[in-house]
Amino acid sequence: MASYAYLFKYIIIGDTGVGKSCLLLQFTDNRFQPAHDLTIGVEFGARIVNVGNKRIKLQIWDTAGQESFRSITRSYYRGAAGALLVYDITRRETFDHLATWLEDARKYSNANITIMLIGNKCDLENKRAVSREEGEAFARENGLFFIETSAKTAANVEEAFVNTAADIHDKIQVGVLDVTNESSGIKLGPTQAGMASLSSGSVDSRRGCC
């Protein structure tokens, strides 16, 4: 079994057709599949990334974007440490719906969730309908991280996932997030859990050695 220090639960949300599943596939499999099945309910993906000198496993819940599924999607927010809120820079309406998505995220997930706003399809510059500045402004006003990505070219895809993980990791370091509370969306990995049982020490006591 691959060892890792922490497991973070992510959710990917946003309107239908913005590229949520493509972002996940690019991140987990390094490939782009233009013709794929549309997502019904929720799909899962996982990958281990390095943050600082720690290995962190990201368990990613990729949700269906259609409005009809909103009642079921809401049940997936619970216990997520990170949320990737995605819109399509070529479709203005997907940007206009961000407020509704954010409202759901705030309402149904835990208060300390890290949210990364993602303007996807940045390879389609000639079809752009939402400027980079607008995206940045929305993120700034709502306390979100912001990045523009292309699931097709893989531009910034890695950064979108890893930067979110870095912020969650920082929150653990400063004690904002409690790793022993499952609703935080964080679990200790097998390495840490093993160390904890060996030393029967707390998370804080282990931090000194890494």
């Binding site: 239908t16 057709g17 013709a35 794929h36 099945d37 549309l38 259609q66 309406e93």
Partner: peptide, 22 residues
């Protein structure tokens, strides 16, 4: 327009590996 757009983006994602449905 919203409904038509939704159907338009979903139909190509219906059996994407099948020549008939593509």
């Amino acid at each position: 327009s919203t409904l038509w757009h939704q159907i338009q983006i979903d139909v190509p994602r219906t059996f994407p590996m099948s020549p008939l449905f593509q």
